[in-house]
């Protein structure tokens, strides 16, 4: 049972969390092309590597960011979301 560290509540069993997908920036829906929009909606980056992901600690409803190396299944760090980049 993997451990995920909530920035507010500390390390917990991963069963206390929900995964929210990789953090991706939304192209401007008012100006981007149909293809760019469809790519954003349906395509995901499947290659292994370090990803910034949304995670939610369910008992406290805390959304935060985890940087996870999906190739080695190692969570590098977790922190509260502070904006893009």
């Amino acid at each position: 049972m993997k451990i995920m560290t909530c920035p507010v509540n500390g390390p917990r069993a991963i069963s206390e969390f929900a995964y929210g997908g990789e953090i991706r920036s939304m192209p401007d829906p008012a100006t981007c092309s149909d293809d760019e929009w469809a790519d954003y909606v349906f395509n995901r980056n499947g290659s292994p590597g370090v990803k910034r992901e949304w995670w939610c600690h369910l008992p406290s409803n805390t959304w935060f960011v985890a940087e996870r190396d999906t190739a080695r299944d190692v969570v590098l760090r977790t922190y509260l979301y502070e904006g893009e980049g």
Binding site: A18, G20, W54, C56, N61, W63
Partner: peptide
């Protein structure tokens, strides 16, 4: 829905709060 709305507001940081 509560979880997803909470995520949107974490991203948008609008001046409002949601209670379940």
């Amino acid at each position: 829905v509560y979880r997803e709305l909470s995520r949107w507001n974490t991203l948008w940081k609008m001046d409002c709060g949601i209670v379940n």
